[in-house]
Amino acid sequence: MMQLLSKQKFLFLFGILLVVTPFVVTNRFYLNIFILILLYATIAGSWNILGGYGGQLSLGHAIFFGIGAYTSTLLYLNFGVSPWLGFIIAAVISIVVGILIGWPAFRLRGTYFTLTTIAFAEVIRHLTLYFRDVTKGAIGVNIRFEPSFANLIFREYSAYYFVVLVLFVISIAIAIWVDKTKVGYYLKAIREDEDGAETLGIHVTKYKMIAMVISAGMTGIAGVFYAQYMLFFEPISVFNMNFSIEIALIAIIGGVGTVFGPVLGAFIIIPLNELLRSSFPSLSGMNYLIYGVVLILIVSFLPNGLLPILKSIPKKLKGLNKKNIKVEDGEKVDYSG
C-alpha cells in the first residue's frame, strides 16, 4: 500500500483532506484545532525560513505576530480599515521592523543573535504596555463581533478555516520556492558555515535579510488572522516569549530547514496542546511541562526532528515487502540485516 504512495500522491491526498476537513469536521472544538494547526504551521513555517534554512535562531518572532495583530486591529478600530487591507499593511510594517532589527542584529552570530531578538521583543512588549493611550496597554484589545466579509469576522468557523488554509498554502508555496531556488541553498550554506559562504561569494547579509523579510511578513499576516479569529488579544498573549519559543519548538520537532517539518510539528504539538488543556484544566502548566521535556529530548536525540523518520517509513515498508515477496518465491531471507 505505502509503496504506491509516492510523495506527490501523498501530498495530493493531504491537500484534498485539508479542503474536505471543514465539511466533515463540523464540531467547533475540533474545527478550532484544525484552524490552530494551520495557523501555527504557517507561523512555524515562516520562522523556519530564517531559523531553519538560515540558521538564525530568532526567539523574538512574537514581535511580528504582535505587530500584525496590533496594526490591523488598531487601523480597523480607529479608522475602519478593513482587515483584508490590514493584511498588507501589517505585512509591510512587520517587514520594515524586521529589516530594522536585522540590520544591526545580523552582525551578531549564534547565541548573540538570539539574545538580541529576545531583547528587541522585550523592548517592544514594554513599549506596547507603556503607550496605553494607543495600544490600550495591559488590558488588551477587544474587537466587537460584527460578522461580515469586509470585517474579516465570521459566524462560521469554516470561513475562518478557508482563510487560514489560503495563508497556509501561500506559506508552503514560499517555503517550496525557497527550498528549490538558490535562496535556500545560500541560506543553508550560511547556516552551515557563514565564513565559508561569504568566501564563496554569497552576500551573507543580503540573504539573511531576504529570509527575514519573508519570515517577518508572513508572521505579521498570521498575527492579523489571529486577531480577527480570537477577537481579543493582549500584550502578554501576542508579545510573549513563550510564543516565540513555541513556534520554534514546532519547527524543531518537525524538522528544521525542510518544507514540511513545521507542518508535521504543528500537527503534533497543537492537538497535544489542546488535548492537555481540555483534559487537565486544573493542571495549568502541564502542556508547557511536556513542551519542555519534548524539547530536551528532541534536541538531544533527534536534532533533525521527526520528518526524516517519517520519510524513512515507506522505504522500510518497501524493504519489508520485497523480503515478503522473496519468501513467497521460496528463497532464503536473512532478517538479521
Binding site: L57, L59, T111, T114, N242, I245, A248, L249, I252, Y288, L289, Y291, G292, V293, V294, L295, I296, V299, S300
Partner: peptide, 10 residues
C-alpha cells in the same frame, strides 16, 4: 540553547 530552554520551561 533549546536544550536549556526546554529545561527552563519544564
Amino acid at each position: 540553547i533549546f536544550a536549556t530552554l526546554g529545561l527552563s520551561i519544564a
